[in-house]
């Protein structure tokens, strides 16, 4: 091979490699920045929900791309980005206490797109922003009401979330009657949310209460404990997420939240729906319920109290 050909060939290779290196995106991607900025811009929607002093910018938001965490820390009208090694590896949104402060931790949008793409779904900026708000609400819960939330689980320890999910699944598999009762309860709640007449709502909740008592008697104490935890903690966060979604995209709100209020799911997912439904019903009965709610009571107990059931 001629020397000139070798030089040209090498130059092409070096040129392409250099092009690949210099065009490689570094740091936090523009799309993740955009998702955070979109989330922050939805503070007005969170204010309309009504939980006291719930601000996204109070909590650092850490975006994990698998190799690094990019922590977005608000400073007035802008934000700083701090790069660090990942504190945890996650393929889902969560919160984590870092140096005494709760942080939102979410996978990068590109990772979420890959993750949901495997099961044939899509993941857009609005969904990423809604997930940030869901987790930020958990930060607010733990920052303000940690003792009440921890006390829900009592002496039981369910640190391993998969254990809780497995327990719930096995309980409902062993007790199909409990699953059937749960479905009926979801339908009753969904009907109440769409009902204007308070007397009819009250009648339905009386039926709901009987079904609830029957269902809970079929489940173990641990399962009942977990149910209270998930309904209060995740149910309210799911409600916040739904409200944020409603402000962004009414169609997606309808298809993913509103139309699925009576949908029974396996595992802990059903408690997200249950809690969200209970929050929506409470909105009908007393729009100010959120200003005083401190997670020490079940949402359904508040409903019973407001209806005199």
């Amino acid at each position: 091979m001629k020397i000139s050909n070798i030089i040209i060939t090498a130059a092409i290779g070096i040129g392409l490699l250099s092009g690949a290196i210099f065009t490689k995106p570094f740091g936090l991607s523009d799309e993740d920045r955009a998702c955070y900025e979109t989330a922050v811009s939805l503070q007005y929607a969170a204010d309309n929900i009504g939980f006291t002093d719930f601000y996204l910018t109070d909590y650092p938001v850490s975006v994990c791309d698998g190799k690094n965490d990019y922590v977005l820390i608000s400073n007035g009208n802008s934000y700083d980005v701090v790069k660090r090694a990942p504190v945890i590896e996650t393929l889902a949104g969560t919160i984590y206490e870092v140096d005494g402060q709760y942080e939102v931790i979410v996978p990068a949008r590109s990772l979420m797109k890959s993750l949901v793409g495997v099961i044939g779904e899509t993941w857009n900026e609005n969904e990423q922003a809604a997930m940030i708000w869901h987790e930020a609400f958990h930060c607010w819960q733990m920052s303000n009401y940690e003792d009440n939330i921890v006390s829900i689980l009592g002496e039981n320890s369910f640190e391993d979330d998969s254990f809780g999910g497995a327990l719930i699944n096995s309980q409902y598999t062993e007790n199909p009657k409990a699953a059937e009762l749960f479905r009926k309860q979801l339908v009753l709640l969904s009907d109440c949310i769409g009902e204007k007449d308070v007397d009819i709502i009250k009648e339905s909740i009386v039926k709901y209460k009987k079904l609830d008592e029957e269902r809970l008697s079929l489940l173990s104490e641990d399962t009942v404990c977990l149910e209270k935890y998930y309904t209060r903690v995740e149910g309210t966060a799911s409600y916040v997420e739904a409200c944020i979604c409603k402000s962004q995209d009414a169609n997606r709100y309808e298809s993913e939240y509103q139309s699925r209020l009576a949908e029974y799911s396996e595992g802990s997912e059903k408690y997200y729906t249950l809690g969200r439904s209970q929050c929506m019903l409470l909105d009908k009965l007393d729009s100010n319920w959120k200003t005083e709610y401190d997670f020490s009571d079940d949402l359904i107990d508040l409903i019973y109290e407001k209806l005199g059931v």
Partner: peptide
């Protein structure tokens, strides 16, 4: 641009 450069580099390597 980045994906294009990486792809072209693979073309280059296989051609070599």
């Amino acid at each position: 641009l980045h994906i294009m450069f990486v792809a072209l580099f693979y073309v280059y390597l296989f051609a070599l």
